[in-house]
Design a protein around this nucleic acid. Sequence first.
DNA 1: CTACAAGTTCAAGTGAACTTGAGGTCAAGC
DNA 2: GCTTGACCTCAAGTTCACTTGAACTTGTAG
Lengths: 143, 143
Amino acid sequence: MKWMDIAEVARRSGVPASTLRFYEEKGLIGSVGRRGLRRVFVSGVLERLSLIALGRAAGFSLDEIGAMFAPDGRPQVDRVQLLAKADELDRSIHQLAALRDGLRHAAACPAPSHMECPTFQRMLHVASADQARRRAKSRSKPG
Amino acid sequence: MKWMDIAEVARRSGVPASTLRFYEEKGLIGSVGRRGLRRVFVSGVLERLSLIALGRAAGFSLDEIGAMFAPDGRPQVDRVQLLAKADELDRSIHQLAALRDGLRHAAACPAPSHMECPTFQRMLHVASADQARRRAKSRSKPG
DNA sequence: CTACAAGTTCAAGTGAACTTGAGGTCAAGC
DNA sequence: GCTTGACCTCAAGTTCACTTGAACTTGTAG
């Protein structure tokens, strides 16, 4: 096992020390103890941080991420939930691909209005449908 | 042209009226005038909202989105910037695809530790690299 | 004409995700 | 043994993207 202080974790992960403390407080990462006052981390925390980064990039909240790998360490949600997240992600990916294509189209297309282009219209349709879905979800979830 | 009041825009777009006013204040959408005090929107605003939704889903801030389609209406940034955004998006898509695969893998794999799986490790690597890139960018940008 | 639902403004509040600042502790180097 | 600097805690501050509340106006129905 390799021991690291917070500065080394920060350096190797690219995550500021303040954020590391914040994540620890939230229970997202853990130190294996203290050396005096100072937190001692093991290399596993780097993977954990990568996982967190991944989840964040995917649009999950820290709480959601925390729920994914429960207190004992490894990914915890049941298969059904995991697959549901994957499907959700899949939809996001399609959208983002649509946006990417839309941007490339916008860059390439000399037409005065992108709104006339079927590709562009389709892209918009996908996005708003998804937005509606997300809003509906976030409203029903808290209750 | 079809005229809509704020409630209809809200209903058809799924975006709350409060958010529509907020977006208008930010200059992201515009009403074509007033009927008494009341804002009057045209159907084009729905497309605009879709575009905003799309940008948000892609992880752009409202300011960035605003910058994409300047005051005059249509997407405005120069081709280079547009293509840069598309490339950025492309990287996000790859990451998300990695996460999606990772989640599916986690759901399917009965191993006690996902960390041992090369697929999973690779996914993590991609995510943290991207995170580092994003952090570096957001620090250099404001200055 | 009155009531009222649906709109309006403007200021303040909210929640998420951090960051910053003040003041304190401790191991190491001079 | 004292200074230095990296670390600590805890509270408060910041940014983003909205939402909420209070007080006000207006078009329409009775």
